[in-house]
């Protein structure tokens, strides 16, 4: 009985950024990619969307304070 964890209401939306998008985000935040929060490549969500080490994920989640909040994570192993 395998469930699709991406459909669970507690799992926020994760998308893999393309190289150009990633560059844009890093430039916007004015940081190195190592300074981003991390996510493990064997994290269930990372596995489900097929992220590879070095990818940057865009995470869109509900927020108590801001309503909707976008954050980024670097995939590491």
């Amino acid at each position: 009985m395998k469930k699709d964890i991406l459909k669970h209401k507690l799992v926020p939306d994760h998308t893999i950024l393309s190289k150009t998008e990633a560059k844009k985000v890093l430039k916007e935040l004015n940081i190195h990619q190592e300074q981003l929060p991390k996510i493990k490549v064997d994290d269930p969500v990372a596995k489900a969307i097929g992220a590879k080490t070095g990818d940057i994920l865009k995470i869109t989640r509900k927020s108590q304070t801001a309503g909707r909040f976008v954050t980024y994570r670097l995939v590491i192993n």
Partner: peptide, 8 residues
């Protein structure tokens, strides 16, 4: 970076 915006 811990939060990209303080308190979101």
């Amino acid at each position: 970076v811990v939060q990209t915006r303080y308190g979101e």
